[in-house]
Design a binder for these strands. Structure first.
Length: 253
DNA sequence: ATGGCTATGTAGCATAGA
């Protein structure tokens, strides 16, 4: 099974690129973040034309998540169970007997921001909910924009980013809590090039200068991780005209 | 160098992203 996560930063703008990419990569399922589109405006028709079924949870301007799959996603659930959140950041569904959790973790803005507090609270709720989910269903993949660079090697300039949002000890601890539940960071199951990143700032020619962060991840439960054949970041998508600032992350098992 | 770039909502800029 081929799975991917991609923060499209506006599905409306990125739709042509997404359709090209689906035709080329032919994943079984892809989890999208930052669709920034209300459900009534979701481009279901174009996506179905490409041979995919979509389930989605969106809002105007911000956030928004979707799961696209060749097979119709089953048992769709919105949000984090037991956690009230008006922001549309999580959608889950079963595809090919695998439970897919598509997540857009809050950014946090900066350590002194209310949004940082919200991010940590959100991550706490997310991990306790996933812990419970993983006891109900063994085959789970958590895919999305985690807005956390787990280690210094996931950061182009660890000194400059030390302690900053996306890299702070509390955020990294929250990521390790997910690993503690039994999830594996699929990307690190394999040898990878140095300076492998999934996001580059639009400004300052950051992509060309390899100034990025690896903050988008595909986490696999133990059994899926054991069967994982490959994981990579499709950085070619960042070379497109009008690219998303994030590249897709792909895992095959 | 606290800027820079992109997208959205909405009609000249404000907000957010990471």
């Amino acid at each position: 099974m081929k799975l991917a996560a991609w923060n499209v930063n506006s599905l409306k703008v990125r739709l042509p690129q997404l359709l090209d990419w689906l035709a080329r990569e032919q994943p079984d399922a892809v989890c999208l973040q930052e669709t920034k589109v209300e459900d009534r405006n979701f481009p279901s028709q174009a996506i179905e034309h490409s041979g995919y079924r979509a389930v989605f949870s969106g809002q105007k301007t911000y956030n928004g998540v979707a799961i696209l799959a060749r097979e119709s996603p089953q048992a769709v659930e919105h949000g984090i169970g037991g956690f009230i959140d008006p922001q549309k950041r999580v959608i889950s569904a079963t595809v090919n007997d695998v439970r897919l959790v598509c997540a857009y973790v809050p950014n946090g803005q900066s350590l002194d921001s209310d949004k940082y507090r919200y991010k940590l609270d959100w991550l706490k709720a997310f991990s306790s909910w996933l812990d419970a989910e993983s006891k109900k269903q063994a085959r789970i993949a958590v895919l999305g924009d985690f807005n956390i660079a787990p280690e210094d090697r996931d950061v182009h300039d660890p000194k400059a980013w030390q302690g900053q949002v996306l890299c702070s000890p509390a955020e990294r601890a929250a990521f390790q809590e997910l690993i503690g539940i039994g999830f594996k960071d699929s990307f690190r199951l394999f040898d990878q090039p140095e300076k492998s990143f999934s996001w580059w700032d639009y400004r300052m020619n950051a992509f060309q200068r390899k100034m990025g962060l690896r903050i988008d991840h595909v986490l696999l439960s133990d059994g899926l991780a054991r069967d994982c054949k490959s994981s990579r970041i499709d950085i070619e998508m960042r070379r497109n005209e009008r690219p998303s600032d994030h590249a897709p992350v792909i895992a095959v098992f």
